[in-house]
Amino acid sequence: MLDVRRLHMLTTVAARGSIAAAAQSLALTPGAVSQQLSALRREVGVELLRPDGRTVALTEAGRVLVDHAEQIFAAIREAESAVAAVKGTVGATATLAALPSTVARIVAPALHTLASRHPQLTVTCLVTDQAQLRELLLGTVDVVLGQRYHHLPEATVAGVQAYPLLDDPLLVVTAAAHPGDAPVALSDLATHRLAVPPPTTECGQAIHHACQQAGFTPTAPYVTADIAAQLTLARAGLATALIPATAIETAAPGIRTTTIADRPIRRRLFAAIRSSDTPNPTTAAVVTALRTSARRARAGQALALP
């Protein structure tokens, strides 16, 4: 019988692209992973990996085995959820991957709620904007707080169940002394010096796309994904920033926020878990807490926006 742990190592190597990267994510040594993969190769009697430049790739047999392994893992997760549902209690641990821009207004309140309602539950929070859904499918995390910008088509990911949380507009942020607080046309920002995220980020791409649709290429002497840095530049009067509303403290001093009147840039925040026919009480509790925080954040936005 095939060893499930070795199958998991194979799928992790396939996803990470190398034995070293897989070993790091599994908290093992590369030698230990190689040893287990060699044992798996002997069990099936055929090569499963081949060199591919500086990385490794699956052979045809390896792809077949990984496809079947995904079905096995799905069945195991379903069994775990079914047992948890029978128990009817929230478990002891969960791992949440969340975007840095959601920590203050959504994640932190949700963690407070969970601590109050389920004191036995310890939530490990990974603050990252890198490949969250992949980590979810690999089983590294249990819940993802992700985003999708409005200019991208809706997409579904096999094996993932997503729950909408909040439509989050980007606000125009300037120094408090900047005149005017009425909504602005996006084209008005053509003459502004902007502080924006790198074009490799989802937010940077959304801003660039919207500006092009408004007829101009943004002038951005300041390029940073660090929202604190963007706010500092705006507060100092050095730049205009475009920042998601939930990433801005409602009482942040020294800045003025306004909405975009004609071509709003929005992201949809969502909570995602691995698909299952049987709800898991632990992940359900985390998602419920995130949805509660999102409702409160939405109410706060309605009061704060001009």
Rank of each mutant, 00 (worst) to 15 (best):
A245G: 11
G300Q: 13
P279N: 04
R63A: 13
D129T: 01
S81I: 12
L165V: 01
P169M: 02
D277S: 13
V184F: 06
E70F: 12
L28Q: 14
A92Q: 09
A108D: 13
V141G: 00
A39L: 15
G17F: 03
L2A: 10
P119R: 03
F73G: 09
T29Y: 03
H150D: 10
L290R: 04
L269T: 07
D129L: 00
T282C: 12
L114G: 03
V56G: 07
G17Q: 08
T200R: 11
D129E: 05
T93K: 12
T219G: 11
A94I: 05
D129P: 02
S38Y: 09
Q132G: 01
T102M: 03
I265R: 00
D3F: 00
G204P: 02
A294F: 10
I260M: 03
R54Y: 15
T128F: 04
A251R: 09
G146R: 02
D277G: 15
D167P: 02
P164N: 01
I255Q: 06
G215H: 03
R235M: 08
V33M: 02
S101G: 07
A94W: 08
A61R: 14
A251W: 10
P199L: 15
L189G: 08
A155F: 01
H208F: 12
A110P: 01
A261L: 13
V143G: 03
V172W: 05
Q161N: 04
V33E: 00
A21Y: 00
D181M: 14
E70K: 14
P153G: 06
A294H: 06
P30K: 05
V13M: 10
A82H: 12
I243M: 04
F73W: 12
A75N: 12
D67G: 11
P197K: 04
A61L: 14
T282D: 09
H8L: 13
P221G: 06
L238I: 12
A182K: 09
P218R: 05
L170M: 13
A236E: 10
R263K: 01
R296A: 12
L7W: 00
Q120C: 08
Y222A: 05
A82G: 12
R266F: 05
A162M: 09
L49N: 11
L48I: 05
A190V: 07
M9N: 15
G45R: 07
R77Q: 13
